[in-house]
């Protein structure tokens, strides 16, 4: 028998309140090209991206700390497959421990030839030093910056 399908698309837009902590973080990126973390008073650890409380201690964080722009690669991947609504491949991204931070911040790795996976992976291996670069036009977002090998 004829088996039919019905196509449906979900179409809802969200305006997520960022709250004071993330709003201030994004304003510094937009206006000053600077990245800040928040220090947990209980442990002294600097959380990047900044959280208003630590999920380990459940204590509020108390202090802004500027971090970066240098750092080291903590994790990376290189995506070679196309996924719906995600950027065209290949692209590399991952997490970087910025100087002065205790936790790693996600971002793209740019300025690399990704055509040979093994070679590209070798250049991005864990511990590699990188530097944060900022876009000239910044909107106040995670995509305003990326990492390049130092």
């Amino acid at each position: 028998m004829e088996l039919m399908t019905r196509q449906e698309t979900w179409n809802i837009t969200y305006n997520h309140a960022l709250g004071e902590t993330a709003s201030w973080f994004y304003a510094q990126i937009r206006d000053h090209s600077k990245i800040y973390g928040r220090r947990c008073a209980a442990t002294g650890r600097v959380l990047v991206p900044p959280r208003s409380f630590s999920d380990q201690t459940l204590e509020p964080t108390t202090e802004w700390v500027e971090v970066g722009p240098g750092g080291r690669i903590e994790a990376f991947t290189i995506v070679y497959e196309e996924f719906q609504n995600l950027p065209p491949p290949p692209y590399a991204f991952g997490y970087v421990l910025l100087d002065g931070a205790d936790t790693a911040l996600g971002g793209y790795f740019k300025g690399l030839d990704l055509t040979d996976p093994a070679k590209a992976a070798e250049r991005l291996k864990m511990g590699t030093r990188v530097v944060t670069k900022f876009a000239e036009q910044r909107t106040g977002d995670v995509l305003d910056f990326w990492y390049e090998i130092a």
């Binding site: 650890r45 959380l47 990047v48 991206p49 959280r51 999920d55 903590e74 994790a75 997490y95 421990l97 931070a101 205790d102 936790t103 790693a104 911040l105 996600g106």
Partner: peptide, 9 residues
Amino acid sequence: YWLGDRMGK
């Protein structure tokens, strides 16, 4: 929840 908190120091 934070992947970056499972790395670093």
